[in-house]
Amino acid sequence: MLTRRIVIAIGAIALLTASPALAQDKSIVVASTTSTQDSGLFGHILPLFKAKTGIDVKVVSQGTGQAIDTGRRGDADVLFVHAKSQEEKFVADGFGVKRFPVMYNDFVLIGPKSDPAGIKGGTDAIKAFTALKDKAAVFISRGDKSGTHAAELDLWKAASIDIAKDKGAWYREIGQGMGAALNTASASNAYVLSDRATWLSFKNRGDLEILVAGDQRMFNQYGVMLVNPAKHPHVKQDLGQALVDWLISAEGQKAIADYKVGGEQLFFPNATVPGA
C-alpha cells in the first residue's frame, strides 16, 4: 500500500520534472538586468519576437554583475545588459561572441521634493553630486556591482570625489536591486540614482521626484551578445543569434522605440550608431 503510493509520487515528480525539458524545445534563456524586466520592456517586445519566430524567451533578470556571471557560467544563451566596459571584457575573455549595441536609456537623479541639497532642476550631474556630498544629503547606493552602481561610481569619480574615502553616515549602500533601492529612498526621503525606465514604472514613490536629468554622462547604453558556444557547447546558437539579430533589426528597433509608459518613451534604439 505504502509502496504503491511511493511509486505514484515518484511518477508524478518524474512527469513534472520532465515537462520543462519538453518545453525547452524552442526556447532560450536570456540573462538580463532588472531594469529591462521591471520596466515592462520585455513584456512588450518578446511577444512580438515569439509571434515572428516561435521562440520562447525565458528572462532571468539579475543585477548586471550577476547577469554577466550567469553568462560566464554558461547558464544563459544570450546576455542583454548595460555595462559597456564589462561587456567588452566578457567578449574579450571569450565568453561572448560579439557585442551589439541595442539601445540606451538614461539615469535620473531622484530625491525628495523638499530637496535639502538644493539640486532641483539642474542638468549637470557633476554639480549635483558635489552638492550631495557637501550637504551630506542622505543618498542610497545600490552597492551591488550592478550597471547602475557602476554608473553611480563613475559619476562620483567625475565629480572628483573619492567616495570610498569620503563617504559618511549619509551614504548608504544597500547591496540590492533598483526596486529595493527606490523603496529604501522612498521610505527615508533620500537621494538615489535610478534608470528612468524603472523609475517610470515604479509605483511606491512617496515624496520622491526626478531632480536632475539630461546630462550626457547619465546615458545608459545596453548591449546584447550571444554566449560563446565555443566555451559552452550547449548554448542554443541559432535561436540565441535569432534574438540578437532581431533586436538590432529595423523591426526590433521599432518595437523598442514603440514601448511607452504613460506616453513617455523609455528606451532609445541606437543599434546603427557606431561605437555605441
Binding site: 515528480i13 513534472l16 520534472t17 520543462p20 525539458a21 525547452q24 534563456v29 525565458k58 532571468v60 560566464r72 557560467r73 554558461g74 547558464d75 559552452h232 550547449h234
Partner: peptide, 19 residues
C-alpha cells in the same frame, strides 16, 4: 550551473531545480 558538476543535466532555471 553549466559550469558546475551537474551542469550537463541542464536543470538550472527550471522547476526541477526549484524542487
Amino acid at each position: 550551473s553549466r559550469s558546475g558538476p551537474l551542469g550537463s543535466w541542464g536543470l538550472l532555471f527550471t522547476p526541477a531545480a526549484m524542487i
